[in-house]
Design a binder for these strands. Structure first.
Lengths: 339, 339
DNA sequence: TGTTAGCACTCAACGATGACGAGTGCTAAC
DNA sequence: GTTAGCACTCGTCATCGTTGAGTGCTAACA
């Protein structure tokens, strides 16, 4: 038995309808809503074949059919092939990004929000850790009271700051002198090296110990943060709007999984392709067997981040893929600009 | 009919049991679980009186009784009175705050997480806007490429930064010179004034226009952000664990309300007391009539922020109040330190 | 006068039952 | 190969009796 043109059309019709209605599709429904040109009985025969081939499933004998993971896979593969030719427009994406000169973290946050709003699904971005980041500049800014803001900028454009205590008599110029000195000595070194170097300086005495320790602590904190993947998520409880999660227990299980960092990262980490779609079992996780994940990747610095959505297997793949593709490309461009 | 000692004991027993089990409490249950010293029949008579007085409600005639908002009010008032004498210990709170030298926003985020984890409710913090913030320092830090990080520190210790484009030839010293000049001219002025002043400078020409515009834009953005209340929230979908929200529709309504900024702010804004408890109707919102909000306030700079939880009327008030009290006091101390 | 045992009554929850209808699979005719 | 017809399946929904927790009332008791 082979998947001929008519079977494909019927399957496609079922998938489209099911994505829209979330209810099992019967043979008559198809003749009503699509112009296949044959009677329900014929459709039934074809559907029976499609079930045999593993593309359709029957919740029970007297219900309609529901697409299987295999069906979605076929559907998405054809979709992707068809999209290659298309030139995706920027649609409504622009309105989310109209601010200028955003910092990296803001860009990611904005992108995740945009995806969640546009797809009504849960959007997640993951930035893989960069353990070997190097310091580019280091600057102390006076703060009210006897403290200062320590700002560290890395070569990949990541910025972190923290408040440290300093001696009261250090004014803007004095702080700048220290900043210059520290930058000259530390620029180009990795965050880990810096910690060791500063301990050595401190042991030799001389400079303001509090400042040195402050820098070391922030460097340590940054090194820790930077070596960990960072996550942005938005729209987690969008899934409550999907009938497949109308069972509270399921919804809770889904949300709990999203809350566990490692699980989320392993779910959402992208492959090498610009767009990757993993459907149901392909996720390799029994608890997520009726979910799908679509990922796009983007470049920032020398690295690859992942932007994606997670939701029920029944999701509007075409729209999701288009949205993710557009936004991830936009992100890559913005990051290129920032550098 | 008056609320004598025995009625109070029975009411209190009902509330305690109900908070624990979430199921209507019957007369026999009370005699089984509490040592009131009278028979179920007597309890029934008392319960009938309590219902008459408005402290108890009957979901239907053959179910047990459920405490009314009025009952919780009484319960909480007595609780607060009893707590005055107590010296609250720091319990497990410390483990959340062991990082040193946190920035304001981090402290708030940490606090909200701590509250949510400890109470298993939805925790929210609100920092009221400070429209009249003044600039304390302003500093440009070199970034890779032809851009710089602009950092603005306000007199209340709020820090914001953004990346701006500058001429390629500006090195660290040049940027510092500009920073000094700008700080000298702008320090002490409000964010709004600064925008006007910079437009004037720019019109006169001379200095690096891009820098001036960058500073103006960031000042504008900060002014906008600062004049708005800022919100931190954690544990929104904790409510899915409460049987009162086992109705998906209710859960969704609750979550939607939390997502609407203005509604959330109006719900969570605290009064002047260190701890405020608003129960059911007292919130003045029909859609939240079976929820309660407990708020604590904390000081930061000259301002008052609010830290609170929102959840079903049936919440463990004693524990919630204690937790909020401890953490809000801790926050006030930390903010005093930072300054 | 307050307390208690007894008893009739109420009503949500639960399970069984049957009608309904959407949908299937099979067969025979076209 | 397609289609009409028909028997069959099975989830959904409404109905109905049963069960049990809990109440309110009354009368007896201390």
């Amino acid at each position: 038995m082979v998947l001929d043109e008519r079977k494909l059309r019927i399957l496609s019709a079922i998938i489209d309808d099911y994505i829209e209605t979330a209810a099992p599709i019967g043979s008559r429904t198809i003749t009503r809503r699509h112009d296949i040109g044959v009677s329900p009985a014929t459709i039934r025969n074809e559907m029976s074949d499609l079930t045999e081939l593993g593309y359709l499933e029957q919740p029970h004998v007297s219900a309609g059919r529901v697409p299987s993971g295999k069906a979605y896979r076929l559907y998405v593969d054809r979709l992707m092939a068809a999209m290659e030719d298309e030139d995706p427009t920027d649609e409504e994406v622009s309105s989310y990004f109209d601010e200028k000169a955003l910092q990296m973290e803001d860009i990611v946050k904005t992108a995740v929000q945009a995806v969640s709003n546009l797809t009504h699904l849960t959007a997640v971005a993951i930035l893989p850790g960069q353990p070997a980041m190097r310091i580019a500049t280091l600057q102390l800014v006076p703060m009210p009271g006897d403290s200062a803001l320590l700002v560290i900028v890395t070569d990949s454009g990541i910025v972190r700051d923290t408040v440290i205590h300093v001696s009261r008599q250090l004014d803007m110029d004095a702080l700048y002198a220290i900043s210059r000195m520290l930058t000259e000595n530390l620029a180009g070194h990795t965050l880990r090296d810096v910690q060791v170097m500063l301990d050595a300086y401190a042991a030799r005495g001389g400079a303001d110990q509090r400042v040195l320790m402050g820098v070391r602590d922030l460097a340590a904190q940054m090194a820790k943060q930077a070596s960990e993947d960072s996550i942005a998520m938005e729209g987690a409880h969008n899934i409550l709007n999907y009938p497949e999660f109308s069972d509270l227990e399921k919804a809770r299980a889904f949300l709990s999984t999203l809350e566990i960092r490692d699980q989320l990262i392993s779910l959402m980490c992208a492959g090498e392709q610009p767009i990757s779609v993993r459907i149901g079992d392909e996720l390799g996780r029994p608890d997520m067997a009726d979910c799908s994940v679509v990922n796009a990747c983007f470049n920032y610095g020398g690295c690859r981040g992942s932007l994606g959505v997670i939701g029920p297997m029944r999701m509007p793949y075409a729209q999701v893929i288009r949205t993710l593709y557009t936004i991830s490309r936009r992100m890559t461009n913005l990051f290129a600009e920032v550098r």
